[in-house]
Nucleic acid binder design. Sequence first.
DNA 1: GCCGAAATAGGGGTTTCCCTCGATGCGCTG
DNA 2: CAGCGCATCGAGGGAAACCCCTATTTCGGC
Lengths: 224, 224
Amino acid sequence: MADTISVVIVDDHTMVREGTRRILDGEPDISVVGEAGDGTEALALAARLKPDVILLDIRIPLLGGIEVAQRVRGIAPDTKVIVLTAYDDDDYVLAAMEAGTAGYLPKTVRAAEVVDAVRAVAAGETVLHPSIARKIARFWRRGTIQSVAADEVCLTPREMDVLRLVARGLHNRQIAQALTVTVRTVEGHLASIFGKLGVDSRTEAVIYGLEHHWLDLGADDVGG
Amino acid sequence: MADTISVVIVDDHTMVREGTRRILDGEPDISVVGEAGDGTEALALAARLKPDVILLDIRIPLLGGIEVAQRVRGIAPDTKVIVLTAYDDDDYVLAAMEAGTAGYLPKTVRAAEVVDAVRAVAAGETVLHPSIARKIARFWRRGTIQSVAADEVCLTPREMDVLRLVARGLHNRQIAQALTVTVRTVEGHLASIFGKLGVDSRTEAVIYGLEHHWLDLGADDVGG
DNA sequence: GCCGAAATAGGGGTTTCCCTCGATGCGCTG
DNA sequence: CAGCGCATCGAGGGAAACCCCTATTTCGGC
């Protein structure tokens, strides 16, 4: 490795990117070599620059941060990824861990901690913010992260179709029309969904889907 | 008005605050005099420092950004507020306008634009990002912002109680128990809610509440 | 002191939802 | 090929949910 650590910053908020850049460029041993505002851009930069470290936000357009992290392993195996995000849901943290990231920090940390984290992962260490580490530990005690990921329920594509329409407030009859099937089929899928999610009403299913980021409200910020 | 513009930065993400601070402190005519990580802290700083400009995030703990903006008018009338946030929902934009803010910028803008905005509002101008301005214009054409705000439905406290429980997936029977009333009463409140929101199912009502930020999913990040 | 809004609650009805039994065909995999 | 998951439907029934109308009490305001 060179004596200066090359870093790429990925965040859809330009303000945040530029602020982070100034923080890191203020360090003599760190050099920001690129910025990306969405997932595909991030992968392109990773492939071209193969930086030592990528600071990666989770909620970015075009490609989710988790997927970016996974693919970076393939295209730039020596690049370490630090997830730096506002979101610290269990799902995000676990998914990031499985994607082989070298660190996970909430955006509430101080700048100095991020600088330290960059140096640490560049040196081969793993950096978890205490609050995140606690989360992990909790799951670990419950039987390893793998098993947590395994018990992750998985709806079929058709079931997702149904759930998405339920989450838009449609009745079974309307869903049936939208999917050109009978109401009975919709009910069948819903029964299956309820079973998998461990709920017993459409409203609970929608809540579950929103909490696990399977659905979004069509509006809201969506990385922008 | 001094020759240097005093600025307070409000954001719950320390990283973002420090990055923004470095951007602004790099300007000779701008001086960051304080940072706050939540709403109450922001008001305390506003009262004590009476800065020329406050850069304010919307989703902050303890007190929402909109409410902070409203109160700042009372405690520091000469202070201009620029909303700088990841969220650009109609509701947020309109609420911010009504709260008397001097600008509204998405976090996707470049640092230079924020710097310009700070100077502009300090000079008494109003700064709207083009994307935000379009939003406003759309509502304006539909009959002024006031009327939009007026047709804003308003649930009674009891109706909000019911809606919150509905949004947690409870059945009417469970809601009735939780509120120590009969199922009929819950149905009555729900009927009233449906009428006000213009929907006809509990699921739609929950979606409406989430989209308008009346509800949150209990989890998620809460702090944008 | 009356009026309106909110909260409470009931009667009686229709619709939708949800469950428990099934069944068929289709594609993939061991 | 023999399963197995997936998607598609059906019957029948009980339980919620939702709708329209009415009624009481309470409380704050003019």
